[in-house]
């Protein structure tokens, strides 16, 4: 665990589905404490990349390093223990459990194997519910929550895992402008707590405000990386988003 190694590094990641290349030779690094944005049109391979990092899928080629050590063949739960937390584009709560129990699960397991004591985990869960503004709904069943609250729950659950790296898969899709603003503020506060964040979005406007740097995927390839303003002016990026008509 050398301190000089970046928190996260992908090298030459490639994934095929029945001959179709979903990701091709994707390489990038994440420095500690950064908010990195990952954008790209539909079908660019963003969700595949999240699944590769989280461990739900295994790469066909390439390596994934976390704090300098290879993790590409570890199962998802082990990556969670190392400190990788992810949210799902379609939120995946534990539907029959209360909101509080959902978050308690994050605290009971999560990074380092989690908190062993159920009462302490419950206490931590309350704090995280407070942090995301979901404390009043703590006793509700998770499947009774509305859309934005389900996303808050997803946040609280993954935060309770105390991850070092947080993968946020399209958490802002479908939110109103006001809800998007509060999500942006929330992610900034998360970073201020020392977590590194990879924000995956289809919609560009919010992510441009939020990210320190941006990655752009198109047809499974990384076509740009850098400062948000510069990346969004890149002609290849403009072309990817607006199609060939402008080229």
């Amino acid at each position: 665990m050398s301190e000089t190694a970046p928190l996260f590094e992908a090298r030459g990641l490639t994934k095929r589905f029945q001959g179709l290349v979903a990701l091709s030779e994707v390489s990038f690094r994440l420095e500690r404490g950064a908010i990195m944005g990952l954008i790209g049109p539909n079908g660019a391979g963003k969700s595949t990349l999240v699944s590769l990092i989280g461990g739900a899928l295994a790469p066909d080629a390439g390596e994934i390093r976390f704090e300098g050590a290879r993790i590409d063949h570890l199962p998802p739960f082990r990556r969670a223990h190392l400190g990788i937390g992810r949210t799902y584009q379609l939120t995946k709560p534990f539907p029959g459990l209360s909101v509080l129990d959902n978050v308690t699960l994050g605290a009971l397991f999560g990074a380092g194997g989690g908190e062993r004591d159920r009462a302490k985990a419950r206490e931590q869960a309350r704090e995280w519910l407070d942090f995301v503004g979901l404390a009043p709904q703590a006793a509700q069943h998770a499947d009774h929550l509305g859309g934005p609250d389900r996303k808050r729950l997803e946040f609280a659950k993954v935060l309770a895992m105390r991850p070092k790296l947080l993968l946020l898969d399209e958490v802002m899709a479908g939110l109103t402008p006001a809800e998007t603003d509060s999500a942006v503020a929330l992610i900034r506060r998360i970073r201020d707590r020392g977590m590194t964040v990879l924000v995956i979005e289809h919609v560009v406007s919010a992510i441009r405000r939020l990210s320190d740097r941006l990655l752009v995927l198109n047809h499974g390839q990384l076509i740009a990386e850098g400062e948000p303003a510069a990346v969004l002016r890149d002609p290849r990026v403009v072309e990817a988003y607006l199609g060939r008509r402008r080229a």
Partner: peptide, 22 residues
């Protein structure tokens, strides 16, 4: 803790693995 892990598996096994349940 064992029991809540089992319940998490019942409710959603993929999500359980993602929060670190073996």
């Amino acid at each position: 803790r064992f029991g809540i892990a089992l319940i998490a598996i019942r409710e959603n096994e993929d999500a359980a693995a993602a929060v670190g349940v073996d």
